[in-house]
Design a protein around this nucleic acid. Structure first.
Length: 425
RNA sequence: GGAGAGUUGGCAGAGUGGUCGAAUGCGCCGGUUUCGAAAACCGGUGACUGUAACAGGUCCGAGGGUUCGAAUCCCUCACUCUCCGCCA
């Protein structure tokens, strides 16, 4: 949710900033609703004020033993009138709310303006991609060659976009998650959390997945319906929903390892091979809840934490700043980290780190008490993958593969693998 | 799954349908006192909306209803706690 004050300031600038993000604001419709809302609200509140004062007088009259008949007559029709104004008002307010909840966040001034991923800007690179003359196998070929990655079995059990990992590869996957969690808790100062994988509608609204991205979510059926989380960002960020947080509790740094579930409704035919894009995958997620003035500093730090994981794993990567047109709905600024995949000869997203500023906080009603003013203000929230476990597995398999199809276990993971140095068939 | 008890401000906890946005205590902020602190005493202290500032409006788990008037009465739902059953 944008700050409502923006709508009362420079409308043209707002429209322009939203256009950069690919959102056309229907200003005429908005103003029509907003003006009507003002009139109705004024009328409703005037009626309420009259009702309140007459009711009070009736109470006083009765307590003094006077006959309230005259007063009762004077408000005889007031109730009906109020009811009809009120219902008009509620309708208008809900239309306005619908309109506002589908408007994306504004981009920070430092974000490159552009239409799509072509316009993203590379910030830095780390590591050296492997030799160009080597016959790099992709992770599917490697995994199936080892007999430890089974797509056929997964499709029998569940359908497309699932995988079954076996043996040392399953363990490597688990080792990656453990290693990431331990690094963030032990070296980067995060608090570990274990959170619900099923959440309610309000929670998904808070972080911005609803109402606009309903089709991307899995939803349970039954009397009470839940949504499967598309990322741990959802439960972690919502831990401060509907609260006024004291300054002494800030900043909060959360890390959680969870399964994530996505319908991938809009991606038929894309990344159908392998583990790149699945309905279920695991991710170690970083979430920061901070004072507004420290959020951009935190974005840089969090991105660095995710990078540390890739460095320790010896995976070449690059960091890019997403342009205005390529950012997610709630983000004000996003860095993507892309890992080198030798089989495809390109960099592929493995982490996405965003500052949403007060956008999610306003939806969640998450505030902090600013000690300087004593007043509650929206918090800033950030989230980033630190990192996607399935894609990290792909990165490790492909970058650390040997000519015989075996995989060298990176130093950092060996303690989690019982000392194993090499995965072979 | 069955039976019962709850849900009120940062926390604890009152609240006969009528000047109740809500007593009181704690906490917090300011002051008096003190060399300083503690204690004591005095004063202040919810959120949202709205206004130039007042005024006004909304909020006592959520949503409906009754009434001129609802924290208080009625209905539905959610959650918490206790006991029984079941279960990892």
């Amino acid at each position: 949710m944008l700050d409502p004050k923006l709508f009362r300031q420079d409308m043209n600038k707002l429209i322009e900033k939203l256009r950069q993000r690919g959102h056309e604001l229907d200003m005429d419709n908005f103003l029509k609703l907003e003006n009507r809302r003002k009139v109705l609200q004024e009328q409703t509140e005037t009626l309420q004020a009259r009702r309140n004062s007459v009711s009070r007088e009736i109470g006083i009259a009765k307590s003094q033993g006077r006959d309230p008949k005259e007063l009762l007559d004077s408000v005889a029709t007031l109730g009906d009138e109020l009811k009809s104004r009120m219902s008009d008002l509620v309708d208008i307010q809900s239309s306005l709310h619908d309109l506002l909840s589908e408007i994306p966040n504004l981009a920070h001034d430092s974000v490159p303006v552009g239409r799509d991923e072509q316009d993203n800007v590379e910030i830095r690179r780390w590591g050296t991609p492997g030799a160009a003359d080597f016959e790099w196998k992709d992770h599917v070929e490697l995994g199936e060659g080892l007999g430890m990655m089974d797509y056929e079995l997964a499709s029998k059990l569940a359908g497309s976009r699932f995988v079954v990992l076996k043996g040392a590869l399953a363990r490597l996957h688990r080792a990656l998650a453990q290693f990431m969690l331990d690094t963030h808790v032990g070296e980067h100062g995060y608090s570990e959390a274990n959170v619900p994988l099923l959440v309610n509608e309000t929670t998904l609204y808070g972080t911005g997945q609803l109402p606009k991205f309903e089709e991307d979510q899995f939803k349970t059926s039954g009397d009470s319906s839940y949504y499967l989380i598309p990322t741990a960002e959802v439960p972690l960020t919502n831990t401060v929903a509907d609260r006024i947080v004291e300054d002494s509790e800030l900043p909060m740094h959360w890390v959680a390892h969870t399964a994530c579930f996505r319908r991938e409704a809009g991606s038929y035919g894309r990344d159908t091979r392998g583990m790149i894009r699945q309905h279920q995958f695991e991710k170690v997620e970083l979430v920061h809840i901070v004072r507004p003035h420290e959020s951009y500093e935190t974005l840089e730090a969090m991105t660095g934490h995710a990078e540390t994981i890739l460095r320790k794993l010896g995976l070449p990567y690059r960091v890019i700043a997403l342009c205005t047109g390529d950012m997610g709905f709630a983000a004000a600024k996003t860095y993507d980290i892309e890992v080198w995949l030798p089989s495809q000869n390109l960099y592929r997203e493995i982490s996405s780190c965003s500052n949403t500023e007060g956008f999610q906080a306003r939806r969640m009603k998450a505030r902090w008490r600013n000690p300087e003013t004593g007043k509650p203000e929206p918090l800033h929230t950030l989230n980033g993958s630190g990192v996607a476990v399935g894609r990290a597995l792909i990165g490790v398999m492909e970058n650390h593969q040997n000519p015989d199809g075996s995989i060298t276990v990176p130093e950092a993971l060996r303690p989690y693998m019982g000392g194993m140095t090499r995965i072979a068939a």
